[in-house]
Design a protein around this nucleic acid. Structure first.
Lengths: 201, 201
DNA sequence: GATCGATTGACCAAACCGGTTAATATTAAT
DNA sequence: ATTAATATTAACCGGTTTGGTCAATCGATC
C-alpha cells in the first residue's frame, strides 16, 4: 500500500476506512465493488487504487486494522479489570460501544471476514486472524467469589443470563445504523444495577 | 407466477424456497443472482424462470410467503397464551425455533427485506410488509400479576432482562448455519427455570 | 415411437468490475 | 505569473456476470 495514505488528514482516512467496512460488511468480498467504497468515501475509484494497489490489499489492510483496534481495546479493558463481575461487564460493553461509535461497521466486517470463503483470500485472512483467535472473549465463567452473592443462586446460570443479555444488547447496537452510544450505555448501566440488586447480597 | 409450482412435491418446493431465502438473505436483491438460487436448489436457472416469470416476482413471492408463515406462527402462539410470562416466552422461542428449522434463512431474509433499498422493489416490499407491521411482537411489558413475584423486584427491568436474553438467544440461532433446535430449546428451558427460581415467589 | 409436459444447455445483449492511464485540478515554490 | 510537483479524476478496456429467452432434450405415458 501507498504510505501516503497515512499522510492524509485523519478524518479522511477514517472516512475511507469506514466506507470499506461498510461495503465489505454488507457484501461478500467478491461482490463488494471498489467503486462503491470510493463513492461511500466521497473519493474516486482511481484514488482508492492510488492508495491501495488492489482490492485484496485494501481488504487485508482493513482486516489488520480491525484486529489491531479490537485487540487494543481488549487490552485496555484488561488493565482495569477488577474482581467485580458486573463492573467488568459494564466496562466491556462500554468500550465496545465506544469503538462502535467510531467504526460503526467494523465488528460486522470482522465477523464476515471470519466466514469469508473466497479462495483468493481465505488463507491470508486466517494468517491475520490467527494470533487474535486465541484470546477468547469471556464465554467461560470467570472466577467468582460465591460469598458475595445471594445464597442458592446458580452462578453458572446467572453468568449465562448476564452474558446472553449483553449479547442481545450488542446485537441491537449492531442493527441500528446510527447508534446513540450514550443512551445505550445508560440503559445498560440500569440493567447492571438491576442485576446487582437481585444477585448480590 | 406459474401455478405449476404448487403442483411440485412439497420438498422440492421447500428446497427452492429455502434456496431463495439463503441467497437473498446473504446479498442485496440486486446482487443475488438467480443462477445462484437455482444452483442451491439443485435445478437449472431456466426452470426457475419457468416457475417465476422474473427475479422480482420470485423475490416478492418469497417475501409474501415469509410474512404469511410468520404471522401464522404468531397467531398460533397467541392461541395458547396463558398468563404465565415464562411460559409465554418459552413457547414463543420454541415456535420460532421450529420455524427456523424448516426455513433456516427466512428470518434473516425478512429482516433484510425490511431494509432493502432497491428502487425497483422498495414500494412493493412495503405493500407486503405493511399489514404485518402493526403486530408488534412483545416489546412492551405485558400485564403481570405482581403478587406472584418476589417482593421488591422491578418487573419492568425483569422483563427487559428476559427479553434481552431471549433476543441474544435468537441471535445465536441465526448465526449458526445448522441449528440443533432441540439442544437450543433445552438450553432455553434451563434458563427459564433459572429465572423462575429467582423471580417467582 | 409418437405425444406431451418437465427440464435443460446454449445463447445474447446489457451491465458491471478491477485495474490502467492520460488528463486535469490543486497546491507550493520560484 | 510560471513552473514544478502533487493530488485527484474521467475515460477507457478486456473480461466476466447477469437477467432472461428459446430451441433442444429428457422421461414418462399411451
Amino acid at each position: 500500500m501507498n504510505e501516503k495514505f497515512y499522510a492524509l488528514p485523519k478524518d479522511k482516512q477514517e472516512r475511507i476506512i469506514n466506507a470499506g467496512y461498510k461495503v465489505f460488511a454488507s457484501n461478500t468480498y467478491k461482490k463488494s465493488p471498489v467503486n462503491e467504497i470510493a463513492l461511500e468515501a466521497g473519493i474516486s475509484k482511481s484514488l482508492l487504487f492510488f492508495y491501495f494497489k488492489n482490492k485484496k490489499e485494501l481488504y487485508l489492510f482493513l482486516l489488520k486494522q480491525a484486529e489491531e483496534l479490537t485487540s487494543k481495546m481488549l487490552m485496555e479493558e484488561d488493565v482495569y479489570k477488577g474482581d467485580d463481575i458486573f463492573d467488568i461487564m459494564y466496562k466491556g460493553l462500554m468500550s465496545k460501544a465506544k469503538l462502535m461509535k467510531r467504526y460503526p461497521n467494523m465488528s460486522r466486517f470482522s465477523i464476515k471476514a471470519y466466514y469469508e470463503k473466497d479462495p483468493d483470500l481465505a488463507k491470508d485472512i486466517q494468517k491475520i486472524i490467527a494470533p487474535y483467535k486465541k484470546v477468547d472473549t469471556y464465554t467461560a465463567l470467570p472466577p467468582l467469589d460465591p460469598t458475595k452473592f445471594k445464597d442458592g443462586i446458580d452462578l453458572n446460570m446467572m453468568y449465562q443470563d448476564l452474558f446472553l443479555a449483553s449479547e442481545g444488547y450488542l446485537w441491537r447496537m449492531e442493527q441500528s445504523d446510527n447508534i446513540d452510544v450514550d443512551k445505550i450505555v445508560e440503559d445498560y448501566k440500569k440493567i447492571i444495577d438491576f442485576w446487582k440488586s437481585i444477585y448480590l447480597k
